Amino acid sequence: MNIFTDEILEHNIHKWSGTMNNKTWTLFCGDAVDSLRNIPDESVHCIVTSPPYYSLRDYGVDGQIGLEDTVNEYVQSLCRVMDQLYRVLRKDGVLFLNLGDTYYSGKGASHGKDSKSNKRRFGLRPVDKSGGLGENLERKSIIGIPWRVAIEMTSRRWVLRSPIIWHREKALPEAVRDRPRRSYEYIFMFAKDRKYYFNRQPLIDKQIDEDVWTITPRPSGTELQTAPYPDELVSRCLDIGCPENGVVLDPFSGSGTTMQVALKTGRSAIGIDISETFCRYILEHLEG
């Protein structure tokens, strides 16, 4: 392992670089859009990422995505990052985007507790305000966040090739009484050209449904109180969407799952996160 000196770039972005398993890794700590400007055009083979979901968690970081007052502001904030991802992704590259949905309550501040994460309750959230979030939504409606983001991305040249259902087997059930409890999330597979890298063979070999992936979710980390997706989910994305020795990027690294899996599978990794706490956690594990 070789950890190089911490660099400070424009916009107060910190950058670390090193090697693991003879593969290079780079970690940027700062705003995603500003950090991505330091990555060359068409230099990344595959992107696997799960941005902060809308109005579900407060990580206590200025400039974080997810706490916008309206749905449209959230979609636009996220798509500004997607515009930069389009630039850095190779012409034959693929993006896997994991997004969960949110319900509009319109009933005021939440006073409950959520056993999944103590960061889920933080006073009056946008989804708890009255007014429909600028979308004329009725109370208790699911907002359709993943599809709103996906449709906006298609208007920005992205090619939506496949919505994949992640069946979250054995997930902690939602505390709801008047609707079915959700057991899935979306993983959207995007490309930027008609021809791109795709390897179906791993799906055939495992004899699994190609667009419904049953994978047990990973428990929330006690150290970070974040919501990391499981290693298997990242591995499956890389198996079908990233060539051997490719470069993998995650602009919302969180606890660093994408980087770790990429490096373990013989690929180079680039990570970005706005939280200094998360970045320090990733560095500790890369050093270890």
Results as ranks from 00 to 15, higher is better:
residue 1 M to T: 13
residue 1 M to V: 12
residue 2 N to R: 07
residue 11 H to W: 11
residue 26 T to I: 11
residue 29 C to K: 10
residue 30 G to K: 13
residue 41 D to R: 12
residue 52 P to K: 14
residue 52 P to N: 11
residue 56 L to K: 12
residue 59 Y to T: 07
residue 59 Y to L: 11
residue 62 D to N: 08
residue 62 D to L: 02
residue 65 I to P: 10
residue 66 G to D: 03
residue 67 L to M: 02
residue 67 L to R: 01
residue 71 V to N: 03
residue 75 V to C: 10
residue 76 Q to N: 15
residue 83 D to F: 03
residue 83 D to N: 13
residue 84 Q to C: 09
residue 84 Q to N: 07
residue 93 G to D: 08
residue 99 L to N: 08
residue 100 G to R: 12
residue 100 G to Q: 15
residue 101 D to Q: 09
residue 103 Y to T: 14
residue 105 S to E: 04
residue 108 G to L: 00
residue 111 H to I: 00
residue 116 K to P: 01
residue 116 K to Q: 15
residue 119 K to C: 07
residue 121 R to E: 01
residue 123 G to Q: 06
residue 126 P to R: 01
residue 129 K to E: 10
residue 136 N to T: 04
residue 136 N to F: 04
residue 138 E to T: 00
residue 159 V to L: 11
residue 161 R to P: 04
residue 162 S to W: 06
residue 165 I to A: 13
residue 171 A to N: 13
residue 173 P to T: 03
residue 173 P to D: 02
residue 174 E to M: 14
residue 177 R to F: 13
residue 180 P to I: 04
residue 183 S to D: 07
residue 184 Y to C: 02
residue 185 E to R: 04
residue 189 M to L: 07
residue 191 A to R: 04
residue 193 D to Y: 02
residue 194 R to W: 03
residue 196 Y to C: 02
residue 198 F to Q: 00
residue 198 F to N: 00
residue 203 L to S: 15
residue 207 Q to R: 09
residue 208 I to T: 13
residue 210 E to S: 12
residue 212 V to M: 10
residue 212 V to P: 10
residue 214 T to L: 06
residue 219 P to A: 07
residue 221 G to W: 00
residue 222 T to V: 10
residue 223 E to A: 07
residue 223 E to M: 03
residue 224 L to I: 08
residue 224 L to K: 00
residue 229 Y to W: 12
residue 231 D to M: 05
residue 231 D to T: 07
residue 233 L to N: 12
residue 234 V to E: 05
residue 236 R to T: 15
residue 236 R to L: 15
residue 241 G to C: 04
residue 247 V to Q: 14
residue 253 S to N: 09
residue 261 V to P: 09
residue 262 A to D: 00
residue 263 L to K: 00
residue 265 T to G: 05
residue 273 D to H: 11
residue 275 S to F: 06
residue 280 R to Q: 12
residue 281 Y to P: 06
residue 281 Y to W: 14
residue 282 I to C: 05
residue 284 E to I: 07
residue 284 E to R: 10
residue 284 E to W: 05
residue 285 H to D: 00
residue 287 E to N: 06
residue 288 G to A: 11
